[in-house]
Structure formats: structure tokens, C-alpha cells
Amino acid sequence: MDLKEIAVKQIQSSIATKQAVLDHLLPEIVKSGQLLAETLQKGNLVLFCGNGGSSCDASHIAAELVVRYKSGNERRALPAISLSADSAVMTAGGNDYGYEEVFARQVEAFGKEGDLLVGISTSGNSKNVISAVEKAKTLGMKTICFLGGDGGKLKGKSDLDLIVPSGETARIQESHILIGHILCSIVESELFQLH
């Protein structure tokens, strides 16, 4: 296979996955955007967590809320935190309580009833994201999970599941960031009438 064919196959696969997202996830995406907007409208906090590339997605989406999503959309900052962003907390938590608890410990510290946790896991089987969702539930927080494939062990544990219908990690991650951008766009539209 030549290099052009490799590139074309990747792009076509990405397009097909995003078409499947459009065909199968639109109602859940809109509901998730509304839940995110309602949470922020009430002055509550949004916490994001994930591992590896999903950690980067968590930080990316949190930054879009704190700073702004669309260039030129001047608005107030919104309260969002990526739970993997503090290396001291991550390493101390991993050392003292185990990596499975690094996010749950922070949910306990920062989360309260009315807040929202967004867990991101391409497989749906990330033990630390599962623990975070379970902890959030005990605090009366709402939860949204960005998942892939069959949803893994996280499927059905959150208030809303956004399961990208693909078994390919790269396609799932591409779709997760697309969904994250859509949610940020919904927030800016609902809270600030910005488009």
C-alpha cells in the first residue's frame, strides 16, 4: 500500500465514523450539551477525566470552557477542571491510594451535588474513570461518559453515554473531540447566544 492510500483510508474511515455518530448519537449529544449548559448556568463545576489521549481531550474541552470555544466569542470564564492536569495530585494519589483512585479522590475533593463529571474512556474499561463515576454518583453529581466500541464496563453507569460506534481507538478519539466541540458550541449558544 502506498502512502497516499494509507492517508485516504484513514480519512475515509474517519468520515464513516463521524457519519455513524451523526446517524446514531445526535439525540444523546444534544441532551449532553443541554446538561452541560444547565450545570454551568446554575454556577456549578464541571470535572473532566481520562487517560492518555483521553486525558488530553479532557484538558482540551475544559480549556474551551474556561477560556472560550470559538475565537471572537467574548464571554465570562466557565468553571471546568481537568483532573489529570495536576501532576503532584496525580502522582501522590497514585502512590498513596493507587492509580485506580486518582480521579475519584479529586471528585471527592472538588465535586458536590449539582456538579457534573465527564469521564472519557475509549474502551469504557478505565478503572480510574469507573471509580470517579461511582464517587460522583455518591455525591449527587450528574455524569456523562464519552466511550467507544460497545461501551465497556462504563456503559450504563452514567446519566448519559456517548458511545462512538467504532472499535478503532483513533476514530473514537477523533469523534470524542468532535463531540466535545459540539458540547462547547451548545454551551456558548445556550448561555451567551453566541454562534
Score class of each variant (00 low, 15 high):
Thr17Trp: 13
Lys153Ile: 02
Cys56Pro: 06
Gly33Ala: 07
Gly53Cys: 08
Ala62Leu: 01
Thr39Ile: 07
Ala58Lys: 09
Gly148Gln: 06
Asp86Arg: 03
Gly52Ile: 01
Ser123Phe: 12
Glu28Lys: 15
Ile186Ser: 03
Val8Ile: 15
Ser158Met: 04
Ser158Trp: 04
Glu168Met: 03
Gly50Trp: 09
Ile182Ser: 07
Pro165Ile: 00
Ala132Arg: 10
Phe48Asn: 12
Ala77Trp: 00
Ile172Asp: 04
Ser189Cys: 06
Leu154Met: 12
Arg75Val: 14
Lys4Ser: 15
Ser82Leu: 01
Leu183Met: 11
Gly98Trp: 00
Ile177Met: 12
Ser71Arg: 15
Ser87Gln: 06
Glu5Leu: 12
Leu194Ala: 11
Ser121Lys: 00
Glu174Ala: 04
Asp23Cys: 05
Leu154Arg: 03
Cys56Arg: 03
Gly152His: 09
Glu28Thr: 10
Glu100Ile: 03
Ile186Val: 13
Ser158Gly: 02
Lys135Ala: 12
Arg76His: 07
Gly167Asn: 15
Glu5Asp: 14
Ser54Lys: 05
Tyr97Asp: 10
Phe110Val: 04
Gly53Trp: 06
Asn73Ile: 06
Cys49Val: 01
Ala132Tyr: 08
Gly33Lys: 10
Gly114Lys: 06
Lys70Val: 14
Leu65Gln: 08
Gly52Pro: 08
Ser71Pro: 13
Ser82Val: 03
Ser185Pro: 06
Gly43Lys: 07
Lys31His: 11
Gly151Thr: 06
Glu38Gln: 15
Met141Gly: 08
Leu47Arg: 01
Leu40Cys: 00
Leu78Met: 06
Tyr69Arg: 05
Ser123Arg: 04
Ser175His: 01
Leu160Val: 14
Glu64Asn: 06
Pro165Tyr: 01
Ala170Met: 08
Ile163Met: 11
Lys155Asp: 00
Lys18Met: 11
Val67His: 12
Gly152Asn: 04
Glu5Asn: 14
Val118Cys: 09
Ile177Phe: 10
Ala136Lys: 11
Thr138Ile: 02
Ala62Ser: 12
Gly50Tyr: 04
Ile6Phe: 07
Leu25Gln: 11
His60Pro: 05
Ser121Asp: 00
Lys42Cys: 10
His176Ala: 02
Asp161Tyr: 13
Ser55Ala: 15
Lys137Pro: 00
Gly111Glu: 08
Val46His: 12
Gly151Cys: 02
Gly53Pro: 10
Leu116Glu: 07
Arg75Ile: 12
Gln10Ile: 13
Ala63Met: 07
Asp150Ser: 03
Leu45Asn: 03
Asn73Pro: 06
Ala37Pro: 02
Ile120Asn: 11
Leu194Thr: 03
Ser32Arg: 03
His60Lys: 03
Pro27Glu: 11
Ser123Gly: 07
Glu134Leu: 08
Ser123Glu: 09
Leu22Tyr: 15
Ala16Glu: 08
Ala7Lys: 11
Leu25Gly: 06
Thr169Asn: 02
Leu154Cys: 12
Gln10Tyr: 13
Val129Trp: 10
Ala77Met: 05
Lys155Gln: 08
Glu188Ser: 00
Ala63His: 03
Ile163Trp: 01
His181Phe: 00
Ala92Cys: 14
Leu25Ala: 07
Leu40Lys: 00
Glu74Leu: 09
Ile29Leu: 04
Ile29Ser: 01
Ser126Ala: 05
Ile177Ser: 11
Glu101Gly: 01
Lys42Asp: 13
Gly148Leu: 10
Thr39Asp: 12
Cys145Ala: 09
Ser166Arg: 01
Glu38His: 13
Gly43Ser: 03
